[in-house]
Design a protein around this nucleic acid. Structure first.
Lengths: 229, 229
DNA sequence: TCGGCACTTTAGGCGCACCTAATTATATAT
DNA sequence: ATATATAATTAGGTGCGCCTAAAGTGCCGA
């Protein structure tokens, strides 16, 4: 069983190398908020384990082995189940759940995982709309696209929202944006300008800057609503 | 904020020095399952903190300062709230809760503590009948005595049960013994021999050896039932 | 009152997870 | 093709939490 630091590193590699491109030392250092030299050390350790968690080549970053991927998905399952649990059972706001889950994901047992999954009815998505990996390592799939890809006139449902900036989440909650909410794009300013849009049934027109808009992914209206929250 | 190891040490000192006698290095080493030399190191660190957590004198063990006592009670509050939470909300058996709580008590935030306390209705006792320290550092009190002090003919309610041996807890659960359950002592064999007794409405007569009996404390029948489980 | 034993502390060491500073490899631009 | 900028690695160091082995204290009984 990996240590907590190793688990965090595997999770980070999963995030950065999900699409097959190798996770670089610098990107990992940035994501984990540690020095690049420390990352190099971790990568060496993870790749020399038996069986190895990652495929690491000096100066060319790292990629998860299937063994490492399995482990990363386990931790992400923990994290997202805990987030949903905190939100649904303990009444946490969705901007509060991430940091608490970040600690708890390493502390809970398999039993705890199973019990909260049962209490929550084996859910597919966390409060931000991210898929919760299943015990067999598969991921619930839902087709979605970036909010930024919509054209004026388009309508869509919020599919998921990046959970890394609590302030952003708080703002989004305050204007009624969350998984399952309908958005209608009115206008898109040129040169990566802001998106003007309406939220749900609220007639107010809101401007979404690029940073905000790119934190949101949407799916087609009418798709079966498997969302939580 | 103390580290996890420090917290565990404070908790251990609380357990051993609750009655004013100083906690010895050897007893702490035994309770924490670490070498005596390691305990000496911890004690030095805890006593040199500002403000100090403990009063430590070389070769004469340690005593909590009020500062250290406050901290120990905080952790015990975490532990016992989590135990009750696991039992009541997640359906853990009472012999399963201790080890899970042992890890979780260090991982949860103040917020988490407050939310589960609220969900549980600010409970006074954990699933084994141990008092849950309040946020102000006071302890719910309930007068009880050792089961071993009862005389033949006496009846009493189970007040609390030591939670350190899961096998014992499992056995007790299997024969229907838990906080709030009525016991009737039929016979006490001489020379620390076993206690013969009846449990609840079950007419079966059970023999309780000394180890088992001394893990159980009882209170008078008819006392207001503030017990959990 | 003094020897011996049990208990405690000191000394020194190890692995982990981090750090900074210095070095080396790779990729890029000329 | 080579110099240079950028990124990555190595070298060496820190604090923590533990360890073992050796040395020191305190106490009790003869």
């Amino acid at each position: 069983m990996p240590t907590e630091a190793e688990d965090n590193c595997l999770k980070a590699i999963y995030q950065l190398a999900g699409d097959g491109t190798r996770a670089t030392t610098a990107a990992l250092a940035d994501l984990l908020s540690i020095a690049p030299a420390s990352v190099t050390g971790m990568l060496k350790k993870l790749s020399h384990a038996d069986p190895p968690w990652i495929d690491y080549q000096k100066h060319h970053g790292a990629l998860l082995t299937s063994h490492g991927r399995t482990r990363a998905l386990e931790i992400i399952r923990h994290h997202r189940l805990i987030e949903l649990f905190l939100h649904r059972i303990l009444g946490y706001r969705w901007d509060e759940v991430h940091s608490e889950a970040e600690k708890l994901e390493h502390a809970i047992s398999e039993t705890f995982e199973d019990r909260i999954a049962a209490v929550l009815g084996d859910p597919d998505f966390d409060p931000h709309g991210h898929p919760i990996p299943r015990k067999d390592g598969t991921l619930p799939r839902r087709v979605d696209t970036g909010l930024v890809d919509l054209e004026p006139g388009d309508e869509a449902l919020v599919s998921r929202v990046s959970d890394h900036d609590p302030e952003m989440l708080q703002y989004l909650a305050s204007i009624g944006v969350g998984p399952g909410v309908r958005l209608r794009v009115l206008e898109r300013s040129p040169f990566d300008g802001p998106l003007m849009l309406q939220i749900g049934k609220d007639p107010t027109v809101r401007a979404f800057g690029m940073r905000l808009a790119s934190a949101i992914r949407v799916r087609e209206v009418g798709e079966e609503d498997t969302c939580p929250s």
